[in-house]
Design a protein around this nucleic acid. Structure first.
Length: 174
DNA sequence: CCCTGATTCGC
DNA sequence: GCGAATCAGG
């Protein structure tokens, strides 16, 4: 891939916005983070203030920002899916709680607070990043949580609590 | 190990 | 000019 004016422009902008080289590479596509860094140097763009690593500025959430629902609205639509298998006797009949967060008339876990998200885009997700979607996919600021997902889980510990609620105990608790 | 940017150097 | 390899660091 070559550095078209458009791509250079985007690179410059994103770099100025403080995104990391790898994140920029992911958004540009077709280039490695090394390519991005190399280009940045060649363009004489100001490098990062201190040669600090990932602990630098990152997601700067000013103040008030109740990162609450984000999912509430549209999710309430496709919440509980009841699958009934009426086969012969009265054997199988179970309802499966589909990936739901907070359903219609709910009260359970509303207390699960998710810290901050890394605002990753689809292409930036890796095996260890939380794949919990945030925002409206149709909007520009749509992103994924991106926090560490432990190792074998698709979500970070916080979103995992929201996603995998033990159905049995939930019913009981209600 | 994950990630970060910085530099080098063959292409 | 480009970017993989490498280095240095959190």
């Amino acid at each position: 891939m070559n550095w078209t004016d458009e791509r250079v422009e985007k690179l410059t902008k994103l770099w100025a916005d403080g995104l990391s080289a790898s994140q920029i590479a992911a958004q540009l596509g077709g280039v490695s983070r090394n390519a991005v860094i190399g280009k940045v140097h060649r363009l004489n763009l100001p490098g990062r203030a201190k040669s600090g690593g990932q602990s630098s500025v990152r997601t700067k959430r000013t103040t008030a920002a109740p990162r609450a629902p984000a999912y509430a609205g549209r999710n309430a639509a496709q919440t509980t899916r009841t699958v009934s298998r009426s086969s012969g006797g009265a054997a199988l009949k179970q309802d499966v709680e589909a990936v739901a967060v907070e359903d219609l008339d709910t009260r359970p876990m509303e207390d699960v607070v998710v810290p901050i998200s890394r605002r990753l885009t689809l292409v930036e997700l890796s095996e260890r990043t939380c794949k919990w979607p945030i925002g409206d996919p149709l909007l520009e600021d749509f992103h994924f949580c991106g926090n560490d997902s432990g190792d074998a889980s698709p979500y970070c510990s916080y979103h995992a609590k929201l996603a995998f609620q033990p159905s049995s105990e939930r019913r009981r608790a209600r």
